[in-house]
Design a protein around this nucleic acid. Sequence first.
DNA 1: CCGACCCAGTTGAACGATCCAAGGCGCCAG
DNA 2: CTGGCGCCTTGGATCGTTCAACTGGGTCGG
Lengths: 354, 354
Amino acid sequence: MDRTTGASGFTGISGHVPLSPPTLADVAERAGVSRQTVSNAVNNPDLLRAETLVRVQRAIDELGYLPNRAARNLRTRASHLVGLRLSPVQEGTANAAMDRFVHSLVWTSREAGYHVLVFSGEGADPLEGYDDLVRSTAVDAFIVTDTYLGNPQATWLRQRRAPFVAFGRPWDDPEARHPWVDVDGAAGTELATRHLLDRGHTRIAWIGWRKDSRIGEDRRSGWSRALKERGLSTTGMASRVEDTVWSGRDASSHLLDEARPTAFVCASDTLAMGVLRTLAERGLHPGRDIAVVGFDDSQVAQVVYPGLTSVRQPLEEVAVAVVRALEDLLGVPTKVADGLLLTPDLTIRASSGA
Amino acid sequence: MDRTTGASGFTGISGHVPLSPPTLADVAERAGVSRQTVSNAVNNPDLLRAETLVRVQRAIDELGYLPNRAARNLRTRASHLVGLRLSPVQEGTANAAMDRFVHSLVWTSREAGYHVLVFSGEGADPLEGYDDLVRSTAVDAFIVTDTYLGNPQATWLRQRRAPFVAFGRPWDDPEARHPWVDVDGAAGTELATRHLLDRGHTRIAWIGWRKDSRIGEDRRSGWSRALKERGLSTTGMASRVEDTVWSGRDASSHLLDEARPTAFVCASDTLAMGVLRTLAERGLHPGRDIAVVGFDDSQVAQVVYPGLTSVRQPLEEVAVAVVRALEDLLGVPTKVADGLLLTPDLTIRASSGA
DNA sequence: CCGACCCAGTTGAACGATCCAAGGCGCCAG
DNA sequence: CTGGCGCCTTGGATCGTTCAACTGGGTCGG
């Protein structure tokens, strides 16, 4: 043990900083015990006599010791890292969910002892990026966010035996056995529609996504359920378009002319912004003349005039549930539920009536 | 070499997936060479005869071998990970720069062989989070984004000898020796102001941040420089407030009453949204009656009616420069410039005149 | 009195890649 | 024949941690 560095303290207290951080052996030497005992002090404190534990702990504090990740990872065959693929930035949309989710996830993961490694799959192949990480054992598991539309990620990851938790239901595969967490979009739009019904609206239109979007159809079902519940018809009141401001503008413009709704429920804030644009062009005032509700409670909804009522996903709760599923997957098999569906709420602003 | 796993192929081609990925030794055996040769094939290909290289390469491909990160990290004392602290999500603002920057950074880093580890410093102490990562040698370097207002991160990291690159100038410390990349905010607002001057405006107001914000004052200087260049006065034309929509609303309302500007340049899109609110409340039309320019080209600017002209930071270029500085810092000391200042451009939309 | 068992530690061997030194072997030039 | 060079092998050490096996003493039941 003739390491020439590290024994002189690693914290900022002493005058100089040594080249390399202290190791288990340094701590052991200082505490007068063996390496293994120090290791136990860190990982299985109850194996030590109280007195010894104190002595080791003091040595740890004095040296500012923290286990070297690489060494620990090598031995335990785990990195305590979870991979999260960032979906491409959509310019010109109001998408804000990802941002909030990432923050919540990072925060929650840290509590559980995990760090988040982000990577991107911008290129053509959505699987690009996963491969390297799996094969080089860089992450312990993945968080997968886009499970809709027959997304191949889930299948691919299962084949590779790569553990993962999904934010999003396995729409296409009821046999799926992986853990997932999702938000009940239908409940959200139902909430929104009821809110408008309670305010006296009876002609409430829907602007959503293309029919092959499972999420879009789910959200749409909440709107139609709420209307039918009150014996109101939905025919001619729905439009399904791309998720852009201009699509929302055109769709709302058509609906206003044809179906004469007094309120709009939209599958996204982006589409709702399109509705607001139509209203502005026609000199109509959102909230007073026509009510509008969006989905996701994005920054746009928060700052736009006069404030956009929007369905807000409980992303903090999602993150907590995802991390819990992760711990279950990687640690002891407590085996909680396979899937968990959370309920969103509604942030009410002036666009649905002041 | 009696590993019972790994020799049967790791890719999804064969029927079953072995429990552990192939190692150097597996590849060596299959290619009929020694471990050392495989290692050389991966790290110093030019040491091998072309023919041998091909053989080893084929074995690598067939087994789907990738070096185990933990083992490599342990030996080379590097993780090929860079840490990025996410700044807290600001609800109710239009902040979008971080999001775009993260994406660009992740993308660029990957090209350079680095992955991005995100962590959060939500708590009271902005240094929280850094400490663990430094001491457990989890990351090779940091990307620091908030270097303004006497932020302690830079100083702290330097003391710990933790390599880092800053996105943002070391405003308070001209002696700083760390590499940094920044965007010339003043050039941006000058561009915006000139754009308005060219459109015939002469009474152009400024809404910015508190005086102790170095970034805010920098952006302000671009506005005043452009005005003075044309012999126009700035007195009574500026307001300095918090970065919220409501502050922007109040400030613009006051300025409209007192100074009668025909255009506004703002330090952020959030403030610009406040101006749009004032205009809406007064029945004024942005772009036709009063021109407005924001800063950051956020999603809000892109989707709001009738479209918000905004200064756009070249975050992709920033990311490229940051990663280059990183490589310089961690690899061979090519030693490019210490600091680099990039110029933003202006995304013109209807709010500054259709 | 003997074997089983617990306690509180210690010791040696992995984990998988990298790095280094020494050496083998075939081949060509001097 | 010798020396040198190109290309590869061999053996070993190393990074810092954790795991499995073991030690030496004490206690307990039969």
